[in-house]
Design a protein around this nucleic acid. Sequence first.
DNA 1: TAGTCGTGGAT
DNA 2: TATCCAAGACT
Length: 349
Amino acid sequence: MDNFHTNIYNWYHINKRDLPWRKDRDPYKIWLSEIILQQTRVEQGKNYFYRFAEAYPTVNDLASAHEDEVLKLWQGLGYYSRARNLHASAKIIALQYNGTFPNDYKNILALKGVGPYTAAAIASIAFDLPFPAVDGNIYRVLSRYYGIETPIDSSAGKKEFQQLAEELIRGQNPGMHNQALMEFGALQCVPKSPKCETCPLSDSCFALKNGLVNQLPVKEKKTKQRHRYFYYYIYDMGDSILLDKRSGSDIWQNLYQLPLMEYEKALSDSELLKADLPVKSSQLNIKYISGQKKHVLSHQIIHAKLIYLEVQGNFNNPSPLIRVNKKDISKFAVSRLVEQFLHEAGLGI
DNA sequence: TAGTCGTGGAT
DNA sequence: TATCCAAGACT
């Protein structure tokens, strides 16, 4: 083996973390961990892994759960399509594969929510199949070590790094190799202020030799953010409030929320008093309007306010809104934003 | 292909 | 405070 492999493997055996999904090689648990860790730091995902592994010890347990319950367990982790796809794929494994996780790359890749990276990770870690798992860590490590300036978010870059990764894994222990490179990127060759002083590859790293550590990897696309203005309403009916289930292709799909009005621009409080309500009634009393809260997502900045309404007398809530007892609010999956508003209003958790 | 999908930690 | 970006996938 060459310098690159020897040094990284030695480094890995000394520095690898004791992570819960590394305790055995149950493909279901490895799949679960990989979905949770997509675009997510290990420290953020760890507790969710414990949660899911305990609630659903097997893929059949996950398959027989209700989506609402899965989303509730996922609440707070973001990118909720991961939870929906995880659940949908569990059903496919339970029904079409009789509960046995598919053990070949093609069928793993065909699962919803499993792309090239995740399929390679599962195939290599759970089944010793020689597929390179090319994630953000590996783009960073390889671009620096080999001095590759091709943008990692271009199709040419993806092809180039994939090809290099395929050469590097050849003849190696696939699961160990992939995990060693990722762990090395996550702990040693980190994005900002990488630990080059203590790096076992410092003698042969192109970027370090040429002062390019802070320029690599190259990324070309910059994300634009759009602003949205959300006005949530609490309809306080004494022992209950109204909730609404989000649908469509927008953010937070299939999560619950407080009744919402959205506008293209911010409304002043006086405009808000005259504005339409998500549910009309003549028997309403405005208790308060909260200050504006800024909630930042990867492609959106949401400016939100909460309007607290007291409902006088009887009130017929129109479908599809649902009337929920205050003590049951915490059973519904909601976004962080709604969770915070509920908390500030003394409801929910 | 480029835009979209969350949240939180690090700098 | 602003920016980056994390074990990416989907449309």
